[in-house]
């Protein structure tokens, strides 16, 4: 039998999986995750996760956007080819602001999205869970706790007992490799 990837427990309501998550977290597992059709309020604390770091990507994206905007306009309208236009100054923060402001938002948005994808290590089109039959309901109305086998706390029996202690309606092993 090929090496199993993880053990998976299925739940029917958010409260039950919240409770199961607390138990698994308390048991000290690291390589495990909760899967739900929608983000469950409070699940992050239940899993003991700290604040998401997407903000840094956004901030640096915005910063780069603003500086490129300002320097581009300074270079083009004042430094490289200074042309007298409309009696207006060659470069001023006022007329340069709208374009820099838009670039800030643009690169900020790209930063957030790319940050999210990078931190989630998406796109990952191949995943053992995606081949699992029951797991297909994760996007419908079922909730799953998945504990990977190569977690150092993982033991065939104790993990299964822990999950049976929760309100899991079904527990099974997930085959396939990372």
């Amino acid at each position: 039998m090929s090496k199993s990837f993880a053990i998976m427990a299925e739940y029917e309501t958010p409260a039950e999986i919240m409770d199961a998550a607390k138990k698994v977290h308390a048991a000290g597992y690291e390589k495990w995750d909760v899967h739900s059709p929608f983000p469950i309020h409070g699940m992050d604390d239940a899993m003991g996760l700290d604040n998401a770091k997407v903000g840094y990507f956004t901030f640096f994206g915005g910063l780069i956007g603003f500086t490129t905007g300002m320097t581009m306009q300074y270079f083009m309208n004042k430094f490289d080819y200074a042309i007298v236009v409309g009696g207006k100054p060659l470069f001023s923060g006022f007329f340069a602001f709208p374009v820099s402001y838009e670039l800030t938002i643009l690169l900020g948005a790209f930063g957030s999205l790319i940050g999210m994808f990078v931190l989630n290590r998406l796109p990952r089109h191949h995943h053992p869970l995606l081949a699992n039959e029951r797991f297909a309901d994760v996007t419908d109305d079922k909730f799953y706790v998945v504990i990977e086998c190569d977690d150092d706390h993982y033991d065939e029996q104790t993990t299964r007992n822990l999950l049976e202690g929760t309100n899991a309606v079904h527990i099974e092993m997930v085959e396939g490799t990372e």
Partner: peptide
């Protein structure tokens, strides 16, 4: 029922 996407596709984005 296997994955639609083969394993190597995970390295494709990079």
């Amino acid at each position: 029922m296997s994955n639609i996407f083969p394993k190597w596709t995970n390295r494709l984005p990079l």
